[in-house]
Amino acid sequence: MLRRRLLALAAAAAAGLAWFQPAPAAEEKPFADVKVVLQISDPQPMKQTLVLNVANNLLRHYGPDKVDIEIVAFGPGLRLLFADNINRGRIKGLADNGVRFAACNNTMRKMTKKLGREPVLVPQATRVSAGVARIIELVQKGYILVKP
């Protein structure tokens, strides 16, 4: 019985670790000249448009292979990554050009509580344990933080 519980615990821990793992390093662009992390945490819909515009403009300015962009969404800004978001087409377009999207799991938990169900995210979103922690981690790696 104890062994089974331990096994289950280990499995859960492994799944949890896998779940909260930051965006895989393989997806990052090691040869990019510029590394940028864009923060979206505001509730205003205009901010969603703005952060996507900034990402798009960076890609146009530097070229997709020369700039590494990750958009980290947390707090009310996580709505950007909802599966039915009006901007989902733009998110897919940016992801196809290498932009990564990180969704804060702390926010997910709180939203799940408020909604009564877990919000469905766009397939391009990768969950991270904490949005702010992810930003700190990226800044420590040399990313420039921009909050449009």
Binding site: N56, L59, R60, H61, Y62, G63, P64, D65, I86, N87, R88, G89, R90, K92, G93, L94, D96, N97
Partner: peptide, 16 residues
């Protein structure tokens, strides 16, 4: 060319 392609793809994929 890459930048143009990227921009075009982002434009085309812009929402509904």
């Amino acid at each position: 060319a890459l930048a143009a392609a990227c921009a075009a793809s982002a434009l085309l994929a812009s929402g509904e």
